[in-house]
Design a protein around this nucleic acid. Structure first.
Length: 652
RNA sequence: CGGGAUGUGGCGCAGCUUGGUAGCGCACUUCGUUCGGGACGAAGGGGCCGCAGGUUCGAAUCCUGUCAUCCCGACCA
């Protein structure tokens, strides 16, 4: 690894000229420590929800992070570019993402120009870059290529949150790689993995790399880099030996052993009837009859909605002691139905409210909620409510007495369930389940006995405390994390959709293999504060601190102090150290408080000892204080700071 | 979008229940004292009480609507 050059070598500034405005009280708008501190310490101001002005101190931090990112990306041979933020709709229509990204819960800001053309403000750049690659990359000889940029992204987040953590306008490094084959993609993916570890390490962040769900971006493999912090939005499950870590959305584990039903109860057929009046929950059922939750199969009814208007009822069977992982379910449903019906828009519980709000011609009154079994008959979906007067063939917009259409395409309701079962349920030889009739359950039912052969899938949520797959002696432990980076193997999803091809060695046209790699630069800055602060303020890691040293003149009316401090300030600056001089005519206490708050890693106090040439050196993180001659300060700091610029030892 | 909360000088808040024309702390300006952990005194400037309607002789206060911000859920760097 190359030694890190300082970003603003020798940059210096007087606090009196810095437009430093610090606040004594926590702003009411902020909830988590990093957000409060960045506002209090004068690093940023909110302009609107999720939209922030980066003030001079923060802009220096962001540029330092960007420089580290740039150096490490360049080291891997990636090429820096700058792509348009204003992007034509037709490009997004070609990839099939325009509707999903602009309509409904879409996150793309979009507008119409004076010619009536529709444009979107880039939330991500797969479309632009793939089009560009298709234009420029004609031959396998040009591959692989990895292009990146650092720029502002726009996302109309459903809920902006926690300052820079989830902004609507934020700075991101995004990279996209193009390959002739999957092996090449995997090589670059691995190189990005290493580059990312170096980037976070150099930024002074403790991160953990976790297996991740690919989400809406798509593709096969993906890995997230998490800054571990209490305020993190994500839940990480990791083994103590460090060999497995995953986002809970993706995590797999060994389920707890199920307790077999006592043999007398295990009839193995369709089950023996059991009267269970009013016992609609697993707790009630277990409490009343002495069952364990792992002896039960519970059934969830859900409704999946697709871009083409298809509405698909789902019947999900889970072992009674397990929870559904919504992400795994969405992936399974997408894999089965998205090819025919377009993007999966939402999966919601099948409730009367949903049926009403979606104006579905479905009567739920026949469904015995609380007593469902996996063999619930599709016939329950056949009933159309007469009172609503809805005609199945009617388009929603034309429904009698109805209001405006809720879906652009006409809604089509499938009249049979898509039945999926989690492995833990499918593996039960005999179980307790609902009788599909009010006030009744069945004991000792089996899958063959119910006439079902469920497809076993992993749909359960892994939990803290579960045993690990790689080593059953290891257990998963939960931690919270802030996602600061995410790398994906995209495969050919975008290149095929956008017909981005090159000519391979055999002279045949072929779609590119692609990867994409993101780092939330502004989020990383706040995550660093979240990880590095104390009661008094921020403790910036040296490598991304706005300045490395602050020289505080305890009393500016003492000529000896001023003279010594000015000399040190010039000496440090000349030595290539980024230094602030607090020359304000404030009392010493005010200046100490501000220095702690804004988090400069090293403080040199020029005070009472100035007459004899003595100063005090204080490290912001920790409580080290050192009296030394001013003449020794520069040499000492050069050593300490060059060490700090290299970051922290790599983790996870 | 659903649920919860809040909008009063730049920041943090009180006042609202029981209507009578706005107050405290910090910050800011000037003067004096003080000067190593957010000093003290004196004087001063700054507010369409989010916005729009309504009730009333009179509204920060009561009513209706609306907008904004924050928190909890789906989204993601």
């Amino acid at each position: 690894m190359i030694a890190s050059a300082p970003v603003f070598a020798g940059a210096s500034m007087r606090v009196s000229r810095l437009m430093l405005v610090t606040l004594r009280d926590d702003p009411a708008e902020a909830e988590i420590p990093s957000h409060k501190l960045l506002l209090r310490a004068g690093f940023m101001r909110r302009l609107s929800s999720g939209i922030y002005a980066y003030l001079p101190l923060l802009w220096r931090v962001l540029q330092k992070i960007s420089t580290i990112v740039r150096q490490e990306m360049d080291t891997t041979g990636a090429l820096e570019t700058l792509l348009p933020q204003l992007q034509p709709a037709d490009l997004w229509e070609r990839s099939g993402r325009w509707a999903g990204y602009t309509a409904g819960e879409g996150i793309m800001f979009h507008l119409t120009d004076r010619q009536g053309r529709e444009l979107g403000l880039g939330p991500t750049h797969e479309e632009v870059i793939t089009t560009l690659a298709a234009d420029l990359l004609r031959s396998y000889r040009q591959l692989p290529v990895n292009l990146y940029q650092i720029q502002t992204k726009f996302r109309d987040e459903i809920r902006p949150r926690f300052g820079l953590m989830r902004g609507r306008e934020f700075i991101m490094k995004d990279a996209y790689s193009f390959h002739g084959d999957e092996d090449s993609l995997k090589q670059t993916y691995a190189a990005m993995d290493l580059a990312y570890r170096r980037i976070f390490q150099r930024c002074g962040l403790r991160t953990v790399a976790v297996e991740a769900d690919s989400g809406a971006i798509g593709g096969s493999a993906s890995q997230e880099f998490m800054v571990t912090a209490e305020a993190g939005e994500d839940l990480i499950l990791a083994s103590a030996d460090g060999r497995y870590a995953a986002n809970q959305e993706r995590a797999v584990s060994l389920p707890p052993e199920a307790l077999p039903l006592p043999s007398g109860l295990g009839a193995g057929g369709a089950g023996a009837p059991l009267s269970t009046p009013g016992q609609t929950t697993i707790e009630q059922l277990c409490g009343a009859h002495g069952f364990e939750a792992s002896q039960l199969v519970k059934v969830l009814l859900l409704l999946a909605r697709f871009a083409d208007g298809q509405v698909q009822p789902l019947l999900i069977s889970l072992r009674g002691d397990q929870q559904l992982n919504a992400v795994k379910l969405a992936n399974a449903v997408t894999a089965r139905l998205a090819p025919a019906h377009g993007a999966l828009l939402a999966i919601d519980p099948l409730t009367a409210e949903l049926v009403r709000s979606e104006k579905l011609a479905l009567d739920l009154s026949e469904i015995p909620f609380g007593y469902l079994g996996p063999d619930l008959d599709d016939a329950v979906l056949a009933k159309t409510p007469e009172v609503m007067g809805l005609d199945l063939s009617a388009r929603p917009g034309e429904a009698p007495g109805g209001g405006a259409a809720t879906h652009p395409p006409s809604v089509r309701l499938a009249r049979s369930f898509l039945r999926l079962a989690d492995t833990t349920a499918a593996d039960l030889a005999a179980f307790v389940c609902g009788a599909n009739a009010v006030d009744g359950h069945r004991v000792g039912a089996s899958w063959p006995g119910l006439g079902l052969q469920p497809e076993a899938l992993d749909l359960r949520a892994a939990q803290s405390g579960d045993r690990c797959l790689h080593d059953p002696d290891q257990c998963l432990q939960a931690a919270r994390g802030i996602e600061v980076g995410h790398i994906f193997q995209l495969g050919r999803k975008y290149s095929e959709a956008l017909e981005a091809r090159f000519t391979n060695e055999s002279g045949v046209e072929e779609a590119f293999w692609m990867g994409c790699y993101g780092i939330g630069v502004s989020r990383l800055a706040q995550a660093a504060v979240e990880q590095h602060h104390d009661r008094d303020g921020i403790c910036w890691p040296v490598a991304i601190a706005p300045f490395e040293v602050i020289v505080v003149i305890a009393n500016t009316q003492e000529a000896a102090q001023v003279e010594l401090a000015e000399g040190l300030y010039n000496e440090l600056s000349a030595a290539g150290i980024e230094v602030l001089l607090d020359d304000r005519s404030e009392r010493a206490g005010v200046k100490f408080k501000d220095a702690d708050l804004i988090g400069i890693p090293w403080r040199v106090v020029v005070g009472r000892g100035a007459a004899s040439g003595q100063v005090e050196l204080v490290r912001r993180a920790g409580s080290e204080k050192l009296e030394l001659p001013a003449s020794a300060v520069c040499a000492r700091l050069e050593i300490e700071i060059s060490r700090g610029r290299a970051g922290v030892p790599a983790a996870g």
